[in-house]
Simulated assay, not measured.
Amino acid sequence: MIPAESLAIFVLASLALAATPGPNVALIVGTSLKHGRRAGILTAMGVNVGVIVQLALVSAGLAYVVEAFSRHFDLVRYAGAAYLVFLAIQQWRHAGEGADMPAPSARAAFGRGLAVAFANPKTLLFHAAFLPQFVTDVQDPVPQIALLAAIFAAIALASDTLWAVVADHARTALKGRFTRLADRVSAGILLGGAAILLAAGRR
Score class of each variant (00 low, 15 high):
L157T: 14
H169N: 08
V85D: 04
R177V: 14
L84I: 00
I52Q: 05
T179K: 06
R202H: 13
T136Y: 00
T136Q: 06
A108Q: 13
I41V: 15
V51W: 10
V135P: 01
A56K: 01
F152Y: 15
Q90R: 13
Q133V: 13
A8S: 15
I28K: 04
T136A: 09
T172W: 05
T172F: 07
L87D: 02
I52D: 04
A150H: 06
G61F: 11
G113P: 10
P143D: 06
I189K: 04
T123D: 08
I89L: 13
V29K: 04
A60M: 14
V166S: 10
P143G: 07
V49M: 09
S70T: 12
L55C: 09
R171S: 12
S14V: 04
G98W: 00
H72W: 13
G30I: 10
V51F: 11
I145H: 02
E67Q: 15
A167C: 11
V47R: 00
A200T: 15
A18T: 10
S6G: 07
K175A: 14
P141R: 03
R184D: 05
Y78A: 03
G61E: 12
V142Y: 01
A153K: 03
I151V: 15
A19V: 09
S186E: 10
F118G: 09
R202P: 01
E67V: 08
A119S: 15
L15N: 03
H94P: 00
G113R: 02
A156I: 00
P3S: 08
L162S: 14
T31D: 02
P102K: 13
G40V: 07
L148R: 01
P21V: 13
T20S: 12
L191W: 05
P23W: 04
R107T: 14
F10V: 06
V65T: 11
Y64W: 14
R107M: 15
I52K: 02
T31Q: 15
F152H: 14
G176C: 08
N24A: 12
L162A: 15
A164V: 08
G188I: 05
S32V: 09
P141A: 12
D100I: 03
A108N: 11
L114E: 09
A109T: 05
A79L: 13
K122S: 14
A128K: 01
S59D: 06
H72V: 05
L125R: 07
Y83D: 09
V65P: 00
L114Y: 07
A4H: 02
H169T: 11
A103F: 02
L190S: 00
G113M: 07
A146N: 01
H94F: 11
T161Q: 06
F73P: 07
T43H: 04
S70V: 04
G80T: 11
P21T: 11
V49T: 14
L42W: 13
N24S: 15
V29P: 08
K175V: 06
L174G: 04
A18G: 07
R171G: 01
F110T: 07
G96S: 09
V58A: 05
Q133G: 01
S59A: 15
V185L: 14
R184Y: 08
S159I: 03
I155S: 03
V53K: 00
R171E: 08
T136W: 00
G201A: 05
G111V: 04
